[in-house]
């Protein structure tokens, strides 16, 4: 009997460890780096890391929802660039009010996402293909709209969103945590969130339960476009310039953060808390390697290796 109860205890501990393994990984990484570099564990550096992570994290939140439904979105980087460019163009070229320009930028990203959603849900095209096409289309739109040249030089109001501070906290970080909170609540506490998990788990059964699954999927892709736009505007504001090639490769970073965070690529399980931890792992790793003067060429290798290792360990723990 003693044996049995100690077995159960051991199992509980393992389960808890398993649940928080990404967090534990992040913590371990932080501890190791704090020994290797004295500057690492300072407030300015940590704030710098979270500010860097905020842009990719916001994109990853949207990606998490898309992946939870069993889909994928490769067009986030391009949607991000397009929305940033539209907002910038509205301010600089058309002389619009900053807030109006931002709204138009957000609407542009949402519209592209909406298109993705309709193509996936209604036309029943594979998400991979639809968003691959959107990746080049939106990039094309961006280049057409900007003539291939950056749009730069904003006033203070617009710069606030990317470069401003609330107290000591960078504004992008505040926006990121706000969105994290909202999306966490959306996923865990609202019917929409429940349906997102249900669709990823079994779309047919969800539909036969009377849920309009097409509508939910369209909403998720549109929301993803919206979040890419938020990121695009923050990035434009921070760089004080809308770059036509902004956000290239972000889709892969976002997918990496989602997967590192433990969301299943086949959908139905995971969540945004894991994703933020996943995004932080990548950012902390990059930052640490920078501080240690490791060349960015090696950093790419390290990043890929960490993703592989994490997914491998995840598989291993699921098999047990």
């Amino acid at each position: 009997m003693n044996n049995l109860s100690s077995n159960i205890n051991k199992k509980n501990i393992l389960e808890i460890l398993n649940k928080f393994k990404t967090g534990i990984g992040l913590l371990a990484l932080i501890i190791i780096l704090s020994f290797l570099s004295p500057y690492f564990l300072t407030i300015p550096n940590l704030l710098n890391v979270v500010r860097q992570v905020s842009i990719i994290a916001i994109v990853s939140f949207g990606m998490t929802m898309v992946i939870l439904t069993g889909g994928i979105d490769l067009s986030v980087g391009s949607m991000l660039a397009f929305s940033g460019a539209i907002s910038a163009g509205m301010i600089i070229n058309s002389g619009l009010n900053v807030f109006l320009a931002i709204l138009i930028g957000l609407a542009a990203g949402t519209a592209l996402g909406l298109f993705n959603g309709i193509a996936v849900a209604k036309a029943k095209l594979p998400a991979f293909i639809v968003t691959l096409a959107m990746m080049t289309i939106a990039r094309g739109f961006t280049l057409i709209y900007t003539n291939g040249r950056p749009i730069s030089g904003f006033e203070k109001t617009f710069r606030f969103f990317g470069a401003g501070y609330l107290g000591r906290i960078p504004v992008p970080v505040v926006i990121m945590f706000l969105l994290l909170f909202v999306i966490y609540i959306l996923l865990k506490k609202t019917p929409l969130g429940r349906y997102i998990y249900a669709i990823g788990g079994n779309e047919k059964a969800t539909k036969l339960s009377g849920i309009n699954t097409d509508k939910i999927k369209i909403a998720v892709y549109a929301l993803n476009g919206f979040l890419a736009a938020v990121s695009g505007i923050i990035l434009t504001s921070r760089l004080n310039s809308a770059q036509p090639m902004a956000g290239e490769g972000y889709e892969l970073d976002a997918i990496a953060a989602v997967v590192l965070g433990g969301t299943s690529l086949s959908g139905g399980s995971g969540g945004v808390i894991g994703t933020i931890v996943g995004a932080l792992i990548i950012a902390v790793l990059n930052n640490g390697l920078n501080l240690l003067n490791v060349s960015s060429f090696y950093q790419l290798v390290a990043k890929g290796a960490v993703i592989l290792l994490a997914v491998f360990l995840d598989r291993k723990s699921q098999q047990q």
């Binding site: 429940r194 998990y197 249900a198 788990g201 079994n202 047919k204 059964a205 969800t206 036969l208 139905g268 399980s269």
Partner: peptide, 13 residues
Amino acid sequence: KDEGLVLGLPVAD
């Protein structure tokens, strides 16, 4: 299994 349940969600859901 295919059309009735979301197997990975709890009984209540």
